[in-house]
Design a protein around this nucleic acid. Structure first.
Length: 232
DNA sequence: AACTCGTCCAACCGCGATTAG
DNA sequence: GCTAATCGCGGTTGGACGAGT
């Protein structure tokens, strides 16, 4: 379609946000709630594109963000979730309250990858380095292409569906102990069994609307009420 | 003190999915 | 059903900063 990037528009600021811009954005969201990103910059008096505003809010200004360094428990949880869903950062973030997909993605690329490599583990396959990929091995972890994500909701795998269905607001961090090696292997087994063998969508795969529901519920980024938003 | 290099992370970008008209 | 607008995601970039020389 040849759409031009919103960042290319003239008279929009780029780069690091100033305190003034942050304040304007937070104040606007506090008054009007989250959403309507396209019209937000104008309404808030910001010379930014909506996309930039959304990113700034989600990754930095949201009041429920945890920030600070990751705990060992979070590390392990990220590794385990990554071994199941691959680079689906928003899904992983949905299981780590207070953490953003961008934060987790950065943390993965700068810390966890190196940590795994130093242990002789391939960060992509989660298998020992040099070990050939074997699609029949139930312990083989994989990165799921987008079209396979709906399988997370496949009725044949209720525990996985449930695992990813929880809204962030009502979820608590999964205790790493709750996902021991056996359960983890089972999770992989169930996933492998439920995934279509080809890239064609499975007959019983959920509709796109269902997929949206999964995405929305797992990202847990619903509208915040003004009371929830506090200027920091 | 000045320079180089490596690391970290906020922000940019492109694109697919979804929604609205 | 089609098209354009909008949203959200994942990959990538680049600037700030600290460590080393």
């Amino acid at each position: 379609m040849g759409r031009s990037s919103c960042y290319e528009k003239a008279r929009t600021n780029k780069g690091t946000w100033t305190k003034e811009e942050d304040h304007r954005l937070v104040t606007h969201i506090r008054l009007h709630g989250e959403g309507g990103w396209r019209s937000l910059p104008k309404a808030a008096g910001l010379l930014r594109c909506g996309k930039s505003c959304r990113l700034r809010w989600i990754n930095y200004l949201r009041p429920d963000l945890k920030r600070g360094s990751f705990t060992e428990e979070e590390d392990e949880l990220i590794i385990k979730l990554h071994s199941v869903v691959g680079n689906k950062w928003s899904l992983i973030a949905g299981r780590l309250p207070g953490r953003t997909d961008n934060e987790i993605k950065n943390y993965w690329n700068t810390h966890i990858k190196r940590k795994l490599l130093s242990k002789g583990i391939d960060p992509q396959s989660h298998r020992p380095l040099g070990q050939p990929y074997n699609s029949n091995n139930i312990a083989v972890s994989r990165s799921l292409p987008d079209h396979e994500i709906p399988a997370l909701q496949n009725p044949r795998t209720p525990e996985i569906a449930d695992f990813f269905r929880h809204d962030r607001s009502e979820s608590s961090p999964i205790e790493p102990a709750a996902l021991d090696a056996e359960e983890h292997a089972e999770l992989n087994l169930n996933l492998c069994m439920s995934l279509p063998s080809t890239s064609a969508p499975a007959a019983n795969s959920p509709s796109s609307a269902d997929r949206t529901a999964v995405s929305n519920s797992t990202s847990g980024r619903g509208l915040l009420t003004p009371e929830m938003v506090e200027w920091r």
